[in-house]
Design a protein around this nucleic acid. Structure first.
Lengths: 216, 216
DNA sequence: TTAAAAAATGACTTTGAGTCAGTTAAATAT
DNA sequence: ATATTTAACTGACTCAAAGTCATTTTTTAA
């Protein structure tokens, strides 16, 4: 009997439809300004039911972050399988990341939030979607590290690079500059006359410069 | 009559003593898990009085962030006046930033929070301490940009660098990697066997590599 | 057709940010 | 010195929203 399987599937679908609803609400008014009642209404369910599927508002938000990370992971996987040297693919990954931040700004914002998690909240729930997000995060690091490893082998990247350290560091650098652009680009544009796009390009150029192999 | 001046001074002192109390409470239990009543009790004042001095819990927290930024600004100013080439001082600024994150982890965490502000909260109050924080932030950027400018002049940094862009980018990169270390170092250490210190050194090395002038 | 299990509900509890009418203390005027 | 005005402070109160749970509805198994 496929009843159990069907139930499993329906449960999954319910999870997804609740996350759909949460995206609509959270992205339109901001997480802080949204209530679980509003999510429930958007999902055409009662609040109690939402709490049957998600342990907290934060868990629900991490459901969104998890989606975002899966999407990004997919993009990265795709690029990692393309043609080209390690260095080339690394650059393309960076561009894809920026494109992602441009095409899915809400997902990108949500992911930035994840980066900063667990600093201020004692006792963030280690189960649920928070944990799942970490798993995807590690997978993303691995994809990057593999490309970097390829680049070292094919000679397009410096041979003395540590792939995993490099992956983590580049991720940190890139996310850091994007975060500044997100939160301060209007100020920077006004005060220093520098646009977000210029900064990203500048940053990517620096990263390329410190990664490439300068053959003698 | 110095009454007005004295009152002004007392107001300032009250602000500070409330921030003192807030630091104790917020840093011990986390901002989210702390209540304004607890801050009031620690400050030996009523809650109503706290709200005479700060417009919201968030504003109070930004009072702490503001302190943190002033402290860091002081460190940076000091280093910027030291002996040495631009490149040398830039490295020392990075080291000082890392030292700061190590010596004042709570202040550092608070500042990271500031970086991420205004992404999720529609209608963050542009007045109050939030605004003051931005001012100090701009000042920090200027200090960096000046050192970089010096480095270009003295030939220790590449001549084709744009000081302000470089300052913002380095700040982003450094903050980004530190953020990862903060939030994920235990995971990374377990999974990949990489310590926070190693990552920071790796990151600084990359930054030096892409900034220095390679004279022919 | 009935009993048992699963899913869903929404009124209720609880917590904590922010307010405000009233009180106390300090400065100024008489 | 005393009265009056102004400033500083108080804490009981309001209100919004997260999270709960006894009850109801729906689905599955007997």
């Amino acid at each position: 009997m496929g009843i159990i399987e069907r139930k499993e599937r329906e449960k999954e679908e319910r999870h997804n439809s609740i996350i759909d609803a949460a995206e609509k609400v959270f992205f339109s008014k901001g997480v802080i300004n949204s209530t679980m009642d509003e999510v429930a209404e958007a999902a055409e369910l009662s609040k109690g039911t939402i709490y049957l599927y998600f342990r907290s508002k934060d868990d629900l938000f991490h459901g969104i972050i998890h989606r975002a990370m899966l999407k990004l992971e997919g993009v990265f996987k795709k690029v990692s399988l393309e043609e080209g040297s390690g260095a080339e693919r690394l650059t393309r990954i960076g561009e894809a990341y920026f494109k992602f931040s441009d095409e899915y700004p809400d997902y990108f914002d949500a992911m930035l939030h994840q980066e900063e998690k667990c600093l201020f909240e004692n006792g963030v729930d280690k189960k649920g979607y928070f944990f799942k997000c970490n798993e995807v995060g590690n997978s993303v690091f691995s994809i990057l590290a593999n490309i970097i490893g390829d680049g070292i082998k094919d000679g397009s990247l410096r041979p003395d690079i540590d792939p995993m350290k490099h992956a983590i560091t580049l991720w940190g650098h890139t996310t850091g500059i994007m975060q500044i652009i997100k939160s301060k680009s209007h100020v920077l544009e006004r005060i220093a006359g520098i646009t977000g796009e210029e900064l990203i390009n500048y940053s990517f150029d620096l990263i390329r410069r410190c990664s490439r192999n300068v053959e003698k």
